[in-house]
Design a protein around this nucleic acid. Structure first.
Length: 298
DNA sequence: AATAGAATCAACCGCCTAGTG
DNA sequence: ACACTAGGCGGTTGATTCTAT
């Protein structure tokens, strides 16, 4: 299966690569092969470094609820610009983000398929209310008690991008989209203390309810503005390879995920398992962010 | 305990772009 | 101005791990 690149990396190869980076920095990847240090291509070396060997990576950690939210929000804004999105997520690579997204899309597609076939069944089953339909209507009723969801969505405000990135409002950055364009004249992005609000989704207009087996994601929180509970990262700037994020930029702290195992605790608030949170998103919400060309055209 | 299906992860492919001679 | 090359990035694929039955 493996082509010219050489397949899975061995520990010895990693060592060679790491020592090269220590000596020369993360550059001159092709010289690794030309010097005979490794048989890998420069591309392969770079990829290995970026995705696995770079310091402060959150290898093996699931995306936190906060990270999921950021990805979803930024994907809506930038499109499938994974590298760009990853710059807002310390410790995450573009590959991580990409894998997370495609995995999530697959899951949603599958659930959507299941739910639509279930709906057909419901139609045939009426008037007898099945237990799942009963739960569904309960969920729907509960949704109506959630004003932050029923209300129309406020304008999105996002983090300022890292300084080395072009303004997302520039033509090159806006080619994909976006439902919520960056608008400097309106001050979006402009306030570094601005928190990303929970994506407000007008569920009612889609006729959506949470899946019957799900819990209400917001029920784990007393305060609907849960990002204020989560708070900004403590000091993300030191965690991203010295890439110079503004110190007040509310980036995420890689240490939160891995320290002490499955730690989803932040500021004494347990935000719950991420899957619970976004499993419960309406199934077609991503379609309102952007059409889905991929993976593999579905 | 065995199995199937789903989820996750790591790596490759191919295109694009910027830098260089 | 052009060709070449390295690096960057998004898409895709296959292996492995996890989970439900």
């Amino acid at each position: 299966m493996w082509g010219e690149w050489g397949g899975p990396w061995k520990a010895e190869e990693d060592d060679v690569l790491i020592s090269h980076v220590k000596k020369y920095g993360p550059r001159d990847w092709s010289s690794i092969r030309s010097k005979g240090l490794l048989q890998r291509t420069g591309k392969s070396c770079r990829l290995r470094w970026v995705n696995k060997l770079r310091p402060n990576l959150k290898n093996g950690c699931k995306f936190s609820a906060e990270e999921e939210r950021v990805v979803i929000e930024l994907q809506a804004q930038f499109g499938n610009k994974w590298a760009r999105i990853a710059t807002h997520l310390p410790g995450r690579t573009d590959n991580d983000v990409k894998n997370f997204w495609s995995s999530r899309q697959k899951r949603l597609a599958r659930i959507l398929q299941a739910s639509s076939s279930k709906q057909h069944k419901h139609k045939r089953d009426v008037p007898k209310l099945s237990s799942s339909a009963e739960e569904e209507s309960t969920s729907r009723a509960h949704l109506c008690t959630m004003p932050h969801i029923a209300d129309p969505p406020p304008p999105l405000r996002l983090l300022p991008p890292p300084p080395d990135l072009p303004n997302p409002g520039t033509p090159s950055a806006s080619s994909h989209l976006a439902p919520h364009e960056f608008n400097s004249s309106e001050g979006l992005y402009s306030d570094p203390h601005m928190q990303i609000p929970f994506p407000h989704i007008p569920l009612a207009q889609f006729g959506i309810s949470f899946s019957p087996e799900s819990q209400d994601p917001m029920s784990t929180l007393d305060d609907p503005d849960y990002f204020s509970l989560l708070g900004p990262g403590d000091d993300a700037s030191e965690l991203v390879d010295g890439e110079g994020f503004p110190p007040d930029m509310p980036l995420l702290d890689p240490s939160l995920c891995c320290k002490g195992g499955d730690s989803m605790m932040r500021g004494n608030v347990n935000v719950g398992k991420p899957d619970i949170f976004f499993d419960d998103l309406p199934l077609d919400v991503p379609d309102h962010f952007e059409p889905l060309p991929s993976p593999s055209k579905w």
